[in-house]
């Protein structure tokens, strides 16, 4: 019995000796990985926030067999959605910097129909096109940022932000619009905004995005406009 106990002890010691190099290697790997992630994450920021979006719609001479009573669909309002994403920022050279943003937006849009059709003798205003009002979008943006000389820039920084962005529609369009392939997959927008950074702890931003290309196929012209406001924090704060 004593001999058996001794054998178990020897086996345990042998096992420990055998796995120690692997354990140390694994530990070293995780340490290196963490350092690597931290070094890479220095210029990487995470952002999240909410947006307010609206579609301005000019249907032109579009016609279809469908009619939609505009009293149910035309609200001319900005509606709220939300988003989150990653931002890769270049260094701050002479108060100028650039960022590459990738965000996923869940947009809920209001609709502003600029034209209507009549269905006389029925009363009311109608449209042959019904805008979709909920989209999942992948937003890719390149922003130029410059520090504005407002307040003490060593503590607080206000930045003006400018640049183009491309929204890729990830969600399917409604069947009403699938019937005539009304919605484009991509929409180009121009962004302008302000950012406020508090001692590099966090950044609040407010961007206005103006649709440049139409979100819908001709002859319908739809501009997608939105206000995005949210917060940016360094990804390294989370690693």
């Amino acid at each position: 019995m004593k001999a058996l106990k001794l054998q178990w002890r020897q086996l345990f010691i042998l096992l420990m000796i055998a796995i120690t190099p692997q354990f140390l290697a694994a530990q070293s790997f995780f340490t290196k990985s963490k350092t690597f992630l931290q070094s890479k994450a220095n210029g990487i920021y995470l952002f999240a926030g909410m947006d307010l979006a609206k579609q301005n719609i000019a249907t032109g001479n579009y016609s279809s067999a469908f009619n939609y009573n505009l009293s149910n669909y035309n609200n001319n309002a900005f509606k709220p959605g939300f988003f989150a994403g990653l931002s890769a920022q270049t260094g701050n050279k002479k108060n100028h910097s650039y960022s590459f943003d990738f965000g996923v937006h869940r947009m809920s849009t209001g609709t502003n129909y600029k034209e209507s059709v009549a269905l006389q003798p029925f009363l009311g205003s109608y449209s042959n096109f019904k805008a979709d009002n909920v989209f999942w979008m992948l937003n890719t943006a390149v922003h130029y940022k410059t520090v504005l000389n407002i307040s003490d820039t060593s503590k607080f920084k206000f930045r003006l932000v400018l640049g183009p962005s491309i929204d890729t529609r990830l969600s399917k369009s409604s069947e009403d619009n699938m019937a005539h392939s009304n919605y484009h997959r991509f929409v180009l927008r121009g962004d302008i905004g302000l950012e406020f950074t508090n001692r590099n702890y966090y950044t609040f931003f407010l961007h206005y995005k103006q649709g440049i290309s139409s979100f819908t196929a001709a002859p319908i012209n739809t501009t997608l406009n939105s206000f995005d406001f949210g917060m940016l924090v360094k990804a390294s704060d989370f690693f």
Binding site: A65, F66, L170, K172, E175, M178, A179, H180, R185
Partner: peptide, 17 residues
């Protein structure tokens, strides 16, 4: 993959109708 959506427009139109 993003661009290639299934485009059975007539089927969608009949379905909506």
């Amino acid at each position: 993959g993003l661009s290639a959506c299934s485009k059975n427009e007539t089927a969608a139109e009949l379905n909506v109708t």
